[in-house]
């Protein structure tokens, strides 16, 4: 492809070279020739506030070379709005780009801006909104096939749930189920499930109905624990649920005992279960047993944190007093 300097479409523009802070600067910026030229044309069009088709192509070119350049993204969004472009078409370019650049978060900020703009033009009840959300969910599922723990993508998904009130949308829990079937240790997916079930504005309360839900979620986590007892995510999930409903840990004593028992100190299958058991013993005022469990963790099952376990054991003295 010829450079911008030889392209007749750009002949009216005088490129602006980089000013990097005076002569002989400490952090002078050097460029590859191609990037350097494109940037000098961008500076020139920005200086005269030009928003045009060729500016859109220029921003695509630069973003392609350096997707982390946040200024270019902002200018592109401005251009799209100023030119009243059909914003749905933006995804034809953005989606394959996002699938190629997994670590970049400007993409997600840009997407957020575009979706927000599209939604603000539509009635909240319009079927077009539902279609747009469905397409977003499908695309996010595709992103997760590349990196199922991508923080930017999960943050975006949470924004989508909150913005479009998707708390009861089946697709959200299905997406999580699907990811946990592939990798039961995906903490991001566990977090999303918690967000959808308990992070909602009308979070379940301590009622009969709430308790049905509590049991459903505990059962869900229990099934995951049976697949991988040493996976801390479902254990944390259950603790979070019990604390949400202000229930004692002893509710799950039998579950913890299945994976850790003081009678069989050599057959502990999960350090998380052992810690939970210790706390249940503490709740039940069986302080000796609690201390023994934490000793086991300090000495055998999680020695790298022995000082933490010993601290917990010391607290028993305070509890006894």
């Amino acid at each position: 492809m010829p450079g911008y300097g030889e392209d007749p479409e750009w002949s009216d523009i005088v490129p602006l070279p980089q000013d990097d802070g005076g002569p002989n600067p400490l952090a002078a910026i050097a460029y590859s020739d191609e990037y350097s030229e494109a940037m000098s044309y961008l500076r020139a069009v920005m200086a005269k506030n030009e928003f045009s088709e060729r500016v859109l192509r220029l921003t695509e070119d630069i973003i392609d070379m350096n997707p982390a350049h946040y200024t270019v993204w902002l200018y592109r969004a401005k251009a799209l709005f100023t030119l009243h472009k059909d914003l749905r078409k933006e995804f034809d370019w953005l989606n394959p780009f996002a699938l190629r650049h997994l670590k970049n978060y400007q993409i997600w900020h840009h997407r957020h801006t575009i979706i927000e703009a599209l939604a603000s033009d539509l009635d909240e009840k319009s079927p077009k909104i539902d279609n747009m959300i469905r397409e977003e969910q499908d695309f996010l599922d595709r992103m997760f096939t590349k990196d199922a723990k991508n923080y930017h993508v999960w943050s975006y998904r949470q924004w989508l749930v909150e913005r479009f009130n998707l708390w009861d949308c089946e697709e959200e829990r299905e997406a999580v189920d699907d990811l946990l079937r592939k990798d039961v240790r995906n903490n991001s997916a566990w977090n999303h499930r918690y967000y959808v079930v308990f992070g909602r504005p009308n979070a379940p309360k301590n009622t009969t109905e709430g308790h049905v839900l509590m049991q459903r979620e505990i059962n869900y986590a229990e099934a995951a624990i049976r697949i991988a007892p040493q996976n801390q995510s479902p254990w944390n999930y259950i603790r979070g649920i019990l604390s949400h409903f202000q229930q004692p840990l002893s509710n799950i004593k039998s579950l913890a005992s299945e994976f850790a028992s003081l009678e069989k100190p050599d057959e502990v299958k999960s350090s998380h279960a052992l810690d939970l058991l210790a706390e249940i013993y503490k709740e039940e005022r069986q302080l000796d047993c609690a201390g023994k469990a934490w000793d086991l963790l300090a000495q055998k099952y999680d020695p790298i944190r022995s000082r933490y376990w010993m601290w917990k054991k010391e607290q028993l003295g305070t509890a006894a007093a």
């Binding site: 000013d19 990097d20 952090a27 946040y70």
Partner: peptide
Amino acid sequence: EVIDFVMSCMHDNGGFSAAPGH
């Protein structure tokens, strides 16, 4: 030189960019 570079990143609104021109 460090200070000069930092100051070259300052904008009229009081904010700083990663590099001049950003």
